[in-house]
Design a protein around this nucleic acid. Structure first.
Lengths: 143, 143
DNA sequence: TTCTCAATTTAGAATAATTCCAATTACAAC
DNA sequence: GTTGTAATTGGAATTATTCTAAATTGAGAA
Protein backbone atom coordinates (compact mmCIF):
# COMPACT_ATOMS: atom_id res chain seq x y z
CA UNK A 1 0.00 0.00 0.00
CA UNK A 2 1.12 3.48 -0.73
CA UNK A 3 -0.17 6.78 0.54
CA UNK A 4 0.82 9.98 -1.20
CA UNK A 5 2.94 12.47 0.71
CA UNK A 6 1.67 15.99 1.24
CA UNK A 7 4.41 17.11 -1.13
CA UNK A 8 3.47 14.86 -4.01
CA UNK A 9 -0.15 15.97 -3.67
CA UNK A 10 0.99 19.59 -3.73
CA UNK A 11 2.99 18.88 -6.89
CA UNK A 12 0.05 17.20 -8.53
CA UNK A 13 -2.12 20.18 -7.68
CA UNK A 14 0.35 22.71 -9.07
CA UNK A 15 1.00 20.64 -12.15
CA UNK A 16 -2.60 20.05 -13.13
CA UNK A 17 -3.43 23.73 -12.83
CA UNK A 18 -0.35 24.93 -14.67
CA UNK A 19 -1.04 22.38 -17.43
CA UNK A 20 -4.19 24.33 -18.14
CA UNK A 21 -2.56 27.74 -17.82
CA UNK A 22 -4.27 28.40 -14.49
CA UNK A 23 -2.74 29.77 -11.30
CA UNK A 24 -2.42 27.72 -8.14
CA UNK A 25 -3.88 30.44 -5.91
CA UNK A 26 -4.25 30.14 -2.16
CA UNK A 27 -8.03 29.94 -2.49
CA UNK A 28 -7.84 27.03 -4.92
CA UNK A 29 -5.22 25.30 -2.86
CA UNK A 30 -7.19 25.75 0.34
CA UNK A 31 -10.40 24.40 -1.19
CA UNK A 32 -8.48 21.38 -2.43
CA UNK A 33 -6.87 20.84 0.97
CA UNK A 34 -10.23 20.92 2.69
CA UNK A 35 -11.49 18.16 0.40
CA UNK A 36 -8.41 16.04 1.04
CA UNK A 37 -8.58 16.48 4.80
CA UNK A 38 -12.05 15.13 5.38
CA UNK A 39 -13.34 12.93 2.62
CA UNK A 40 -17.01 13.10 3.41
CA UNK A 41 -18.48 14.59 0.22
CA UNK A 42 -19.22 18.14 1.39
CA UNK A 43 -21.44 20.57 -0.51
CA UNK A 44 -20.19 23.99 -1.62
CA UNK A 45 -21.75 25.51 1.50
CA UNK A 46 -19.92 23.08 3.75
CA UNK A 47 -16.67 23.68 1.90
CA UNK A 48 -17.17 27.42 2.46
CA UNK A 49 -17.46 26.92 6.22
CA UNK A 50 -14.32 24.79 6.37
CA UNK A 51 -12.23 27.00 4.12
CA UNK A 52 -13.16 30.09 6.13
CA UNK A 53 -11.23 28.69 9.08
CA UNK A 54 -8.09 29.34 7.05
CA UNK A 55 -9.34 32.14 4.78
CA UNK A 56 -12.06 33.96 6.71
CA UNK A 57 -12.93 36.34 3.90
CA UNK A 58 -13.34 33.93 1.02
CA UNK A 59 -16.68 34.24 -0.73
CA UNK A 60 -19.16 31.59 -1.75
CA UNK A 61 -18.74 32.61 -5.39
CA UNK A 62 -15.04 31.88 -5.12
CA UNK A 63 -15.69 28.50 -3.56
CA UNK A 64 -17.94 27.68 -6.52
CA UNK A 65 -15.29 28.98 -8.92
CA UNK A 66 -12.54 26.98 -7.26
CA UNK A 67 -14.57 23.80 -7.19
CA UNK A 68 -15.41 24.18 -10.85
CA UNK A 69 -11.77 24.74 -11.67
CA UNK A 70 -10.68 21.71 -9.66
CA UNK A 71 -13.27 19.59 -11.43
CA UNK A 72 -12.10 20.88 -14.84
CA UNK A 73 -8.51 20.03 -13.91
CA UNK A 74 -9.53 16.51 -12.85
CA UNK A 75 -8.42 17.04 -9.30
CA UNK A 76 -11.87 16.59 -7.85
CA UNK A 77 -15.09 14.85 -8.79
CA UNK A 78 -18.52 16.40 -8.60
CA UNK A 79 -21.15 14.04 -7.22
CA UNK A 80 -24.82 14.59 -7.89
CA UNK A 81 -27.65 12.63 -6.36
CA UNK A 82 -31.26 13.30 -7.17
CA UNK A 83 -31.65 17.06 -7.10
CA UNK A 84 -29.72 17.65 -3.92
CA UNK A 85 -26.83 20.15 -3.86
CA UNK A 86 -23.68 18.98 -5.60
CA UNK A 87 -21.10 17.27 -3.45
CA UNK A 88 -17.38 17.14 -4.06
CA UNK A 89 -14.76 14.48 -3.48
CA UNK A 90 -11.08 14.02 -4.28
CA UNK A 91 -11.38 10.29 -4.99
CA UNK A 92 -10.44 10.05 -8.64
CA UNK A 93 -10.32 6.29 -8.89
CA UNK A 94 -13.38 4.80 -10.58
CA UNK A 95 -16.00 4.17 -7.96
CA UNK A 96 -19.69 3.86 -7.27
CA UNK A 97 -21.55 5.46 -4.38
CA UNK A 98 -23.78 4.15 -1.68
CA UNK A 99 -26.09 6.47 0.20
CA UNK A 100 -27.43 5.28 3.51
CA UNK A 101 -31.05 6.35 3.65
CA UNK A 102 -31.01 6.44 7.44
CA UNK A 103 -27.97 8.62 8.00
CA UNK A 104 -27.58 10.28 4.61
CA UNK A 105 -23.95 9.30 4.71
CA UNK A 106 -22.25 8.57 1.42
CA UNK A 107 -19.73 5.79 0.96
CA UNK A 108 -17.32 5.38 -1.94
CA UNK A 109 -17.26 1.88 -3.40
CA UNK A 110 -14.05 1.51 -5.31
CA UNK A 111 -14.36 -0.64 -8.39
CA UNK A 112 -11.82 -2.97 -9.94
CA UNK A 113 -11.12 -2.88 -13.64
CA UNK A 114 -12.96 -6.15 -14.24
CA UNK A 115 -15.98 -4.78 -12.42
CA UNK A 116 -15.97 -1.72 -14.67
CA UNK A 117 -15.75 -3.94 -17.72
CA UNK A 118 -18.66 -5.92 -16.38
CA UNK A 119 -20.65 -2.72 -16.11
CA UNK A 120 -19.87 -1.72 -19.66
CA UNK A 121 -21.08 -5.09 -20.85
CA UNK A 122 -24.57 -3.98 -19.91
CA UNK A 123 -24.46 -1.69 -22.93
CA UNK A 124 -26.00 -2.96 -26.18
CA UNK A 125 -23.85 -2.60 -29.26
CA UNK A 126 -23.84 0.89 -30.69
CA UNK A 127 -23.51 2.49 -27.26
CA UNK A 128 -20.08 3.75 -26.38
CA UNK A 129 -19.73 4.90 -22.79
CA UNK A 130 -17.08 7.36 -21.74
CA UNK A 131 -18.52 7.73 -18.27
CA UNK A 132 -20.83 6.12 -15.85
CA UNK A 133 -22.57 7.09 -12.67
CA UNK A 134 -23.68 4.39 -10.29
CA UNK A 135 -25.39 5.13 -7.00
CA UNK A 136 -27.00 2.65 -4.67
CA UNK A 137 -29.23 3.62 -1.81
CA UNK A 138 -30.43 1.62 1.12
CA UNK A 139 -29.27 0.87 4.61
CA UNK A 140 -25.67 0.35 5.59
CA UNK A 141 -25.01 -2.03 8.48
CA UNK A 142 -21.40 -1.58 9.30
CA UNK A 143 -19.12 -2.84 12.11
CA UNK B 1 -44.73 -10.07 -26.85
CA UNK B 2 -47.56 -8.27 -25.19
CA UNK B 3 -48.53 -4.65 -25.29
CA UNK B 4 -51.01 -3.30 -22.78
CA UNK B 5 -54.34 -2.09 -24.05
CA UNK B 6 -55.41 1.49 -23.43
CA UNK B 7 -58.06 0.09 -21.12
CA UNK B 8 -55.75 -1.92 -18.92
CA UNK B 9 -53.48 1.10 -18.57
CA UNK B 10 -56.47 3.20 -17.61
CA UNK B 11 -57.42 0.62 -14.98
CA UNK B 12 -53.92 0.54 -13.59
CA UNK B 13 -53.95 4.32 -13.35
CA UNK B 14 -57.29 4.44 -11.55
CA UNK B 15 -56.36 1.58 -9.26
CA UNK B 16 -53.02 2.93 -8.12
CA UNK B 17 -54.51 6.30 -7.30
CA UNK B 18 -57.56 4.93 -5.52
CA UNK B 19 -55.28 2.60 -3.54
CA UNK B 20 -53.77 5.69 -2.00
CA UNK B 21 -57.10 7.45 -1.52
CA UNK B 22 -56.36 9.91 -4.31
CA UNK B 23 -58.65 11.00 -7.11
CA UNK B 24 -57.98 10.15 -10.75
CA UNK B 25 -58.54 13.70 -11.98
CA UNK B 26 -58.40 14.75 -15.59
CA UNK B 27 -55.18 16.67 -14.94
CA UNK B 28 -53.46 13.62 -13.49
CA UNK B 29 -54.77 11.39 -16.20
CA UNK B 30 -53.70 13.78 -18.92
CA UNK B 31 -50.17 14.13 -17.51
CA UNK B 32 -49.90 10.35 -17.37
CA UNK B 33 -51.18 9.99 -20.94
CA UNK B 34 -48.63 12.46 -22.21
CA UNK B 35 -45.84 10.41 -20.68
CA UNK B 36 -47.18 7.21 -22.21
CA UNK B 37 -47.63 8.73 -25.64
CA UNK B 38 -44.06 9.84 -26.25
CA UNK B 39 -41.51 8.09 -24.11
CA UNK B 40 -38.70 10.55 -24.44
CA UNK B 41 -38.06 11.63 -20.84
CA UNK B 42 -39.61 15.10 -20.87
CA UNK B 43 -39.05 17.68 -18.15
CA UNK B 44 -41.94 19.29 -16.25
CA UNK B 45 -41.80 22.24 -18.66
CA UNK B 46 -42.08 19.95 -21.65
CA UNK B 47 -44.92 18.04 -20.05
CA UNK B 48 -46.70 21.36 -19.50
CA UNK B 49 -46.50 22.21 -23.19
CA UNK B 50 -47.84 18.81 -24.24
CA UNK B 51 -50.62 18.68 -21.69
CA UNK B 52 -51.83 22.15 -22.65
CA UNK B 53 -52.83 20.81 -26.05
CA UNK B 54 -55.60 18.96 -24.23
CA UNK B 55 -55.99 21.18 -21.16
CA UNK B 56 -54.98 24.68 -22.25
CA UNK B 57 -55.38 26.22 -18.83
CA UNK B 58 -53.41 23.77 -16.71
CA UNK B 59 -50.74 25.41 -14.62
CA UNK B 60 -47.10 24.50 -14.11
CA UNK B 61 -47.74 24.01 -10.39
CA UNK B 62 -50.36 21.42 -11.23
CA UNK B 63 -48.01 19.64 -13.59
CA UNK B 64 -45.47 19.44 -10.77
CA UNK B 65 -48.16 18.24 -8.39
CA UNK B 66 -49.40 15.60 -10.80
CA UNK B 67 -45.92 14.34 -11.56
CA UNK B 68 -45.14 14.06 -7.86
CA UNK B 69 -48.38 12.18 -7.28
CA UNK B 70 -47.68 9.80 -10.16
CA UNK B 71 -44.21 9.14 -8.81
CA UNK B 72 -45.61 8.49 -5.33
CA UNK B 73 -48.11 6.05 -6.81
CA UNK B 74 -45.34 4.23 -8.69
CA UNK B 75 -46.87 5.03 -12.05
CA UNK B 76 -43.91 7.06 -13.23
CA UNK B 77 -40.20 7.30 -12.51
CA UNK B 78 -38.32 10.52 -11.91
CA UNK B 79 -34.95 10.60 -13.63
CA UNK B 80 -32.20 12.94 -12.49
CA UNK B 81 -28.92 13.50 -14.24
CA UNK B 82 -26.28 15.85 -12.96
CA UNK B 83 -28.12 18.97 -11.90
CA UNK B 84 -30.34 19.24 -14.94
CA UNK B 85 -34.12 19.52 -14.55
CA UNK B 86 -35.86 16.29 -13.52
CA UNK B 87 -37.17 14.12 -16.31
CA UNK B 88 -40.07 11.72 -16.14
CA UNK B 89 -40.73 8.35 -17.70
CA UNK B 90 -43.38 5.66 -17.44
CA UNK B 91 -40.94 2.77 -17.79
CA UNK B 92 -41.22 1.00 -14.47
CA UNK B 93 -39.13 -2.04 -15.31
CA UNK B 94 -35.63 -1.90 -13.83
CA UNK B 95 -33.38 -0.14 -16.26
CA UNK B 96 -30.26 1.95 -16.65
CA UNK B 97 -29.93 5.08 -18.78
CA UNK B 98 -27.61 6.12 -21.52
CA UNK B 99 -27.25 9.76 -22.42
CA UNK B 100 -25.77 10.59 -25.80
CA UNK B 101 -23.44 13.51 -25.30
CA UNK B 102 -23.87 14.65 -28.90
CA UNK B 103 -27.66 14.74 -29.08
CA UNK B 104 -28.60 14.81 -25.41
CA UNK B 105 -31.02 12.01 -26.11
CA UNK B 106 -31.68 9.53 -23.34
CA UNK B 107 -32.07 5.82 -23.94
CA UNK B 108 -33.54 3.28 -21.53
CA UNK B 109 -31.46 0.15 -21.15
CA UNK B 110 -33.68 -2.51 -19.72
CA UNK B 111 -31.90 -4.88 -17.39
CA UNK B 112 -32.49 -8.56 -16.81
CA UNK B 113 -32.74 -9.95 -13.35
CA UNK B 114 -29.32 -11.57 -13.52
CA UNK B 115 -27.82 -8.25 -14.57
CA UNK B 116 -29.38 -6.57 -11.56
CA UNK B 117 -27.99 -9.27 -9.30
CA UNK B 118 -24.61 -8.73 -10.89
CA UNK B 119 -24.86 -5.06 -10.04
CA UNK B 120 -25.73 -5.77 -6.43
CA UNK B 121 -22.69 -8.01 -6.16
CA UNK B 122 -20.61 -4.89 -6.40
CA UNK B 123 -21.71 -4.07 -2.86
CA UNK B 124 -19.42 -5.09 -0.02
CA UNK B 125 -21.11 -6.93 2.84
CA UNK B 126 -22.98 -4.67 5.20
CA UNK B 127 -24.49 -2.64 2.37
CA UNK B 128 -28.08 -3.40 1.57
CA UNK B 129 -29.36 -1.67 -1.56
CA UNK B 130 -33.04 -1.00 -2.10
CA UNK B 131 -32.40 1.11 -5.16
CA UNK B 132 -29.81 1.90 -7.72
CA UNK B 133 -29.26 4.53 -10.31
CA UNK B 134 -27.03 3.78 -13.26
CA UNK B 135 -26.37 6.26 -16.01
CA UNK B 136 -23.86 5.97 -18.80
CA UNK B 137 -22.86 8.82 -21.03
CA UNK B 138 -20.99 8.81 -24.29
CA UNK B 139 -21.84 8.57 -27.95
CA UNK B 140 -24.56 6.39 -29.38
CA UNK B 141 -24.02 5.01 -32.87
CA UNK B 142 -27.30 3.54 -33.87
CA UNK B 143 -28.70 2.09 -37.12
C1' DT C 1 -81.45 18.04 -6.42
C1' DT C 2 -78.98 20.84 -3.53
C1' DC C 3 -75.56 21.15 0.12
C1' DT C 4 -71.25 20.28 2.24
C1' DC C 5 -66.57 19.55 2.64
C1' DA C 6 -62.25 17.80 1.73
C1' DA C 7 -59.30 17.19 -2.23
C1' DT C 8 -57.43 19.46 -6.04
C1' DT C 9 -56.06 23.12 -8.89
C1' DT C 10 -54.30 27.55 -9.57
C1' DA C 11 -51.45 32.01 -9.83
C1' DG C 12 -48.13 34.03 -7.92
C1' DA C 13 -44.77 34.50 -4.16
C1' DA C 14 -40.93 32.28 -1.95
C1' DT C 15 -36.89 29.41 -1.73
C1' DA C 16 -32.50 27.29 -2.76
C1' DA C 17 -28.61 26.29 -5.50
C1' DT C 18 -25.97 28.09 -8.74
C1' DT C 19 -24.29 31.37 -12.22
C1' DC C 20 -23.50 35.90 -13.85
C1' DC C 21 -21.62 40.55 -13.72
C1' DA C 22 -18.97 44.45 -13.01
C1' DA C 23 -15.62 46.24 -9.98
C1' DT C 24 -11.60 45.41 -7.37
C1' DT C 25 -7.36 42.91 -6.22
C1' DA C 26 -3.31 40.02 -6.96
C1' DC C 27 0.55 38.72 -9.15
C1' DA C 28 3.74 37.34 -12.97
C1' DA C 29 6.40 39.23 -16.72
C1' DC C 30 8.48 42.95 -18.52
C1' DG D 1 7.71 49.96 -10.50
C1' DT D 2 4.37 49.41 -14.39
C1' DT D 3 1.33 46.78 -16.98
C1' DG D 4 -1.86 43.36 -18.19
C1' DT D 5 -4.28 39.38 -17.48
C1' DA D 6 -6.23 36.18 -14.21
C1' DA D 7 -8.67 35.64 -10.04
C1' DT D 8 -11.62 37.09 -6.41
C1' DT D 9 -15.51 39.38 -4.63
C1' DG D 10 -20.39 40.99 -3.29
C1' DG D 11 -24.43 41.28 -4.92
C1' DA D 12 -27.83 40.74 -8.51
C1' DA D 13 -29.87 37.44 -11.65
C1' DT D 14 -31.40 32.96 -13.02
C1' DT D 15 -33.52 28.48 -12.76
C1' DA D 16 -35.99 24.69 -11.01
C1' DT D 17 -38.92 23.71 -7.69
C1' DT D 18 -41.91 24.27 -3.62
C1' DC D 19 -45.07 26.86 -0.93
C1' DT D 20 -49.29 29.49 0.08
C1' DA D 21 -53.72 30.94 0.18
C1' DA D 22 -57.70 31.44 -2.52
C1' DA D 23 -60.86 29.41 -5.94
C1' DT D 24 -62.78 25.25 -7.99
C1' DT D 25 -64.26 20.56 -8.25
C1' DG D 26 -66.80 16.60 -7.39
C1' DA D 27 -68.40 12.76 -4.41
C1' DG D 28 -71.49 11.63 -1.19
C1' DA D 29 -75.05 13.22 2.49
C1' DA D 30 -79.30 15.26 3.35
Amino acid sequence: MHSKTADSLQNKFNQKLLDKGLRPTKQRSCVYDVLLQKKDHPTADEVLVRVRKKLPSISLATVYNCLETLVDCSLVKQVNMDRSPSKYCPNLTPHAHFRCSKTGRIYDLNLQEDEINQLKELLPSGFNAENFDLTFSGSANLP
